[in-house]
Simulated scan of single mutants.
Amino acid sequence: MSEKIGVLGCGWLGMPLAKRIVQDSYEVFGTTTSEDKLKQLQKEGIRPFQITLTPTAIQGAIQDFLSHIDVLIINVPPRLRGKNTESFVDKMVLLHSEIKKNGLTKVIFVSSTSVYGDLEGEINELTPPKPTTESGKQLIESEQLFWNDSELSCTIIRFGGLIGPDRHPVTMLSKKTHLTNGNDPVNLIHLEDCIHMILTILENQYWGEIFNGVNPFHPNKSDYYLSEATKRGLPTPNYATDLSKSKAKVIISQNFLDKGYAFTTSIIS
């Protein structure tokens, strides 16, 4: 009998992921912070729970949610930009505590390649992270919380920039001028491949591993975003002329590729 899967955070990635897991004949339990989305989850065959993580408390029936599942997918972004300075680590400490009370042992932690910071050259899963942003620092600390717990079978996925329906970084870059990193490579992944990777981990029981999730195609930013903006009829971003060779990072999904898997969805529109 298939394991029961819990998706904590049914947002832009979590919702389509949960729907696809249902289609693969798993029983799926999903959480949302919004009461309005409970019926939507239910309609998709997902058992809905309204749960909100804060740095001081978890609001909602977290133990009821955890008691139904065999695998927990933690898909909660830090959201530390702007005025929101609440601690993501404190949220994860509370969640970790609830997991320990419950006895759940299998966890997929959705992280980000931001943990590699400003490292240069080719980066794979064996490269020690060196975060420079607050978000990256809190993500790596949260990763370690679950990774270092010997009673958990934790797998970490570090996704690159996420693209998909109604989501693409070119929409934010299109009107900007004097951008200075035009020779740097892109490190992106399509929503479909995010789902593909997570399903592959579930189906093959790849526990206690780290995966980078970045499409192997790495065109430079100026060429790529010029093309993507043009296709969408958007103003093209303006990059300053720079003839120097980029020293930026190229993130390799070594673990996934070494296991014989391929990315299925192009980052080219």
Rank of each mutant, 00 (worst) to 15 (best):
W147N: 07
W147L: 11
N148D: 14
N148Q: 15
D149T: 09
E151G: 11
E151Q: 14
L152K: 06
S153N: 12
S153K: 12
S153V: 00
C154W: 01
T155N: 01
I156C: 02
I156R: 02
R158V: 02
R158D: 08
R158Y: 06
F159S: 12
F159L: 14
F159A: 14
G160E: 10
G161S: 09
G161I: 10
L162P: 07
I163Y: 10
G164N: 09
D166G: 03
D166E: 13
R167S: 12
H168L: 06
H168K: 05
T171D: 11
T171Y: 08
M172R: 13
L173D: 04
S174W: 08
K175L: 00
H178P: 00
H178L: 13
L179Q: 09
L179K: 10
G182W: 05
N183Q: 15
N183A: 15
N183V: 14
D184W: 10
V186F: 01
N187T: 04
I189V: 15
I189A: 07
H190F: 07
H190N: 11
L191N: 06
L191I: 15
L191V: 06
E192Y: 11
D193F: 00
D193R: 01
C194N: 04
H196F: 01
H196N: 11
H196S: 05
M197K: 06
M197A: 12
L199W: 05
I201Q: 08
I201P: 03
L202V: 07
L202T: 11
E203Y: 01
Q205I: 00
Q205F: 08
W207L: 05
G208Q: 03
G208W: 03
F211R: 02
F211G: 06
F211Y: 10
N212L: 06
N212V: 02
N212C: 09
G213Y: 03
V214Y: 03
V214M: 02
N215D: 15
